[in-house]
């Protein structure tokens, strides 16, 4: 599970996919996940980092992460 190399992420949390021409906006949680994905972290690792950073239930985080990853895949942001 990897973020495509040519995906551009701006400081303000905007994504641009040069392959498809699509732009996306994300919130701070999403931006953090994408940053961690870029560092080649696995989903369980990311879940742990999210739980460290935020006051959140691990199960809920895993569920949201799963859904977010599938969304990224659908939009061809993830390989």
């Amino acid at each position: 599970m990897r973020i495509r190399k040519n995906i551009a992420v701006s400081e303000e949390g905007f994504l641009f996919n040069p392959t498809t021409g699509d732009s996306f906006s994300t919130n701070s949680t999403g931006a953090l996940i994408i940053r961690l994905l870029k560092q080649d972290k696995t989903l369980p690792e990311i879940a742990s980092e999210l739980c460290d950073e935020y006051d959140a239930d691990r199960l809920l985080v895993e569920r949201d992460l799963e859904e977010f990853a599938s969304l990224l895949k659908e939009y061809s942001v993830l390989d």
Binding site: S10, E12, G13, F14, F16, S23, S25
Partner: peptide, 11 residues
């Protein structure tokens, strides 16, 4: 440029 579009669209 895409950055301009993102700014108006996102912010």
């Amino acid at each position: 440029d895409i950055a301009e579009f993102q700014k108006i669209s996102g912010n």
